[in-house]
Computed example of a mutant assay.
Amino acid sequence: MSDHDETAGSQSAFEEEARQVLAAGAREEKLRRRYPIEPRSFERTRMGPYTAYAAMVLEGSGWRQMFPAQPSEDEARLDLAAVLRDTTAHPHVGAGRYAQAADAVENGADQVILGECVYRIVRVEQTVIMTEYGPEPPQATDRPFPEEFDDRESEH
């Protein structure tokens, strides 16, 4: 193959890529015209935080979220209380103490200590990333909630 043939081949590949880029740009421009963005839309391009609630437990040297965040504090409290009532008693703490801790959480206690474990109701600031084209879709780098931290019963 001559140098001229290689140059022609690479030129043709470059031209094809350029055509694809131009076609994508034309589609994007068409969408921009169809869905115009007003100058005051900067609020739609920011993170919109919202607060949820969960329970965490301090075990050994680290905190573990016990279940996915709930939309209300009351739901998180009820979930933690249910977990405490269903927990097999710690060797150093009797079942009655777990029931007392569950009642305390339901009645507004943000933290209870049972044996060496510290249980705490926490705020979880979640965000929705808003772009000028709407909410950000899932990304390849997103990670699912780890199964070992999901104490919910399987629905399968």
Results as ranks from 00 to 15, higher is better:
Y35L: 11
G94I: 03
H156R: 12
E73R: 04
Y53S: 09
Q111G: 02
T88F: 04
E29T: 04
Q11I: 00
D79H: 13
A24Y: 00
M66K: 05
V93G: 08
A99G: 04
P146L: 07
Q111R: 11
V57S: 06
S61D: 13
V105Y: 01
W63M: 05
G108V: 12
A89N: 09
R34W: 09
Y53N: 10
L80T: 08
T45D: 06
D103W: 02
A82V: 03
M47G: 01
L22E: 12
R97K: 12
G96I: 08
S10P: 00
S12Y: 05
P68G: 09
P39S: 13
T87Y: 03
T127M: 05
Y53R: 10
L114P: 02
M130L: 15
L31E: 14
V93I: 15
F145S: 03
A104V: 07
F14W: 02
E6A: 14
A18D: 09
S2F: 08
F42G: 00
L114N: 05
Q139A: 15
P68C: 11
P91G: 10
G62E: 14
G94Q: 11
A8Y: 07
L84M: 04
E155S: 12
G94N: 12
I113N: 02
G48Y: 05
R85Q: 10
Q100E: 15
D3Y: 08
E147H: 03
V93M: 11
R152W: 04
G48L: 14
P91V: 14
D142R: 10
R33H: 10
L58Y: 06
P138R: 13
R40L: 09
H4E: 13
M47S: 02
Q139D: 13
L84Y: 01
R77Y: 03
V105S: 01
R85Y: 00
E136L: 15
E136A: 14
R44A: 11
Q20V: 05
R85H: 01
Q20R: 15
E38F: 12
R32K: 15
T88M: 05
P137A: 14
T88H: 08
E125C: 04
S10R: 14
R152K: 06
D150L: 03
R19A: 14
L114C: 07
R97P: 01
I121L: 15
E125H: 02
F14S: 07
V105W: 01
M66H: 09
Y98K: 02
S12Q: 11
E16D: 10
I37V: 15
A76I: 13
E153F: 12
A23M: 01
D142N: 14
A102E: 03
A54R: 00
L22W: 02
S72R: 11
V105C: 03
R32T: 06
L31P: 00
A95V: 07
A55L: 12
Y53Q: 10
D3I: 06
E17H: 06
T45W: 04
S154E: 12
H4M: 02
D103F: 00
Q20I: 09
Q70A: 15
V118Y: 01
I129D: 08
R152A: 07
L78W: 06
G60H: 04
F149L: 15
T45S: 10
G9E: 13
V118D: 02
E75S: 14
R152F: 05
